[in-house]
């Protein structure tokens, strides 16, 4: 009787342990981990080229993940990519002149959106747009530039701030 009982307890512990492991693997080591977020607020950013950026790609500041890409759409009139970022509510102290860029982790890794904090005393609010953006660096473009030996920087000058409605037009 007691033996039977100890087997039942052992089995129970084993099953709990097994499902804990499985649950951990399924939710913490997969893309599900990116879903699991607390409350977020949305920021928008326009890019001429988002490259290989995918939905749920991370948004990072200084390498630390602060949110994810929640939407990527083409703006029909300007033919630019409009990317919506879901930023963790915890990080609501982002200066509203911060810049966004699409980076690649490593040489061949996945792409992510990196934010570079600015110095403005005002902070981003829900629905704001990030004005300063830098598009994805395409490997092919880089090589091309290197071969030609020139290339205009894709980073928009802060001067573009003066015409926030069409920041991208100053560039090309």
């Amino acid at each position: 009787m007691t033996q039977r009982r100890s087997h039942q307890i052992g089995t129970g512990l084993f099953i709990v342990l097994g499902f804990t492991a499985l649950g951990y693997l399924a939710t913490q080591t997969t893309s599900l981990a990116n879903y699991r977020q607390g409350p977020t607020y949305a920021l928008k950013a326009r890019f001429t080229n988002v490259g290989q950026l995918k939905l749920r790609a991370p948004v990072k500041i200084a390498g630390v993940r602060i949110g994810s890409v929640s939407d990527i759409q083409l703006e029909p009139d300007r033919l630019e990519a409009l990317v919506t970022l879901a930023i963790d509510k915890r990080y609501d102290q982002l200066p509203d002149d911060s810049a966004a860029a699409v980076f690649t982790s490593g040489l061949l890794g996945d792409q992510y959106v990196a934010l570079k904090p600015g110095g403005s005393p005002d902070m981003f609010k829900h629905g704001d747009e990030i004005i300063l953006t830098q598009s994805s660096m395409q490997l092919e473009e880089l090589i091309g530039k290197y071969l030609v030996g020139s290339g205009d920087s894709q980073t928009r000058k802060p001067a573009a701030e003066e015409s926030p409605a069409t920041p991208e037009s100053a560039n090309h």
Partner: peptide, 11 residues
């Protein structure tokens, strides 16, 4: 280590 993993592994 983790963000790469969570970015590429599918449930």
């Amino acid at each position: 280590f983790w963000s790469n993993m969570t970015g590429a592994v599918d449930v």
